[in-house]
Design a protein around this nucleic acid. Structure first.
Lengths: 239, 239
DNA sequence: ACACATACGACACGTTCCGTATCATACGGA
DNA sequence: TCCGTATGATACGGAACGTGTCGTATGTGT
């Protein structure tokens, strides 16, 4: 969700300006990294509202004009900081409980952990920013990289090998539904305890998987839906 | 979603203070309504960030202390304004296309319209506020009223009468999945065109409905999931 | 080597908004 | 009538904004 906001972006606004300049002193990339590290720390410490140019300047030992030269708004600065942050690494641990049902439950639990991580809190934050700023949305979407679709696919593949699912099944239901539903529950502040997960898996995911063919494979998705956004499918959706 | 934030709330903080005061001049309810109307207008006009106590005071011809006496933060004021706004009226038009599939598609389309309304934009805004403020979340949740669950139920009932669904089916899949999935697509800025709706209905909703029994009826839900939050089921979910 | 263009830190400035305090005054309840 | 509170006006210190202007540092291009 959030248009894959959180992890990979395009070039800084600064880069554009630097391209056009002919000579002179170039910007210090390390200095910039230090500043963005401060922003990241501040973001984790006080949240979005707690970030001010003044405080960033204080902590980084930089001057405000230096900050304003690079980013013209708080949002832009935060976006740059998130981009510069450590890339999200896919969960490496395999999931193999021996059954589709067990695998799906494990997958849901892992998804919940991911959503509770700092990164996704940041993403949630950028969501609102993006909603209010279509241009930012497009930048983000354009530069977004794939998110962790490997595990869901592997789980479904394993189920196919076991004969639990037909071989033309599409992981769409898990990617689309599990991510959306779990995140929304989190947003609503409702619990995602084992009773809920059981109902989700047994009543929705498994029945839907069993009934799904490749018919829906062409649909794009975003963060938390587990599948990378393909080509700029359509810029619709922003009223 | 958003813990039913948007429409029905409990009493103002001011009410509490007024209860305890013994005599003296009471607050002017009309004055308060005027102020909140200004807040609402400002919210629509400039968004959450654009609302300041100064500006509200200017437009309403009130003084800042008057505002601070009633609400101690911008967020609180906005929440009150949203509460005071016109109550959401359930869509009155019936849905009757003659088939479960058609009904579900129509229901999804209506849900999309609802989510694109101003109200839900406000709700989205309060979502972030709520996430950062567990107390506010609880207030909101406590005071939340039921949301539009009538139509989904009616659609499912009709399908049961037609024999398209077993009579012990639970509307959980639609309520939980359709709302979550569609809202998340909106957040991601992805389209919810007819191809998507078709896939959602055919690949997920209908198979899940066919396979679902009452097993999941006890699960609570929130805004956009179509079912009112029952008793304070569990305060978990806020890490 | 030199000139130039630019980044940088430091500091200052006017502005906006915050949140609080202090008035005199208006107004309803006992 | 008297008391208690709400109200509007105004003032205040503080924080942060966004910009301007220095002198200095440090690259690029000739």
């Amino acid at each position: 969700m959030i248009r894959n906001v959180s992890y990979v972006y395009g070039s800084h606004p600064s880069a554009e300006r630097q391209q056009r300049s002919r000579g002179g002193r170039p910007r210090d990339a390390e200095r910039e990294a230090e500043i963005l590290a401060v922003v990241t720390a501040l973001l984790a410490e006080r949240g979005y509202e707690g970030i001010t140019f003044e405080e960033v300047a204080r902590r980084a030992g930089a001057s405000k004009p230096t900050l304003y030269r690079r980013w013209k708004s708080r949002r832009e600065m935060v976006v740059a900081a998130v981009k510069a942050g450590p890339a999200r690494r896919d969960d490496q641990d395999e999931i193999n409980t021996g059954s589709l049902r067990g695998d799906l439950l494990a997958l849901c639990e892992r998804l919940i952990r991911t959503m509770h991580s700092t990164d996704s809190q940041t993403a949630l934050l950028l969501l609102q920013a993006g909603l209010e700023d279509p241009e930012l949305c497009e930048d983000i979407e354009r530069a977004a990289g794939p998110t962790g679709a490997r595990l869901p696919t592997a789980v479904v593949d394993a189920a196919i090998r076991r004969g639990e699912l037909p071989d033309d099944v599409d992981p769409f239901p898990f990617e689309e539904v599990a991510g959306a539903t779990l995140l929304l529950r989190r947003l609503n502040g409702l619990s995602t305890d084992s009773a809920y997960l059981t109902a989700l898996v047994d009543s929705i995911l498994i029945p839907a998987l069993r009934a799904t063919s490749q018919r829906s494979a062409a649909l794009p998705a975003g963060i938390f839906s587990g599948r990378p956004t393909p080509a700029p499918t359509s810029s619709e959706g922003h009223p």
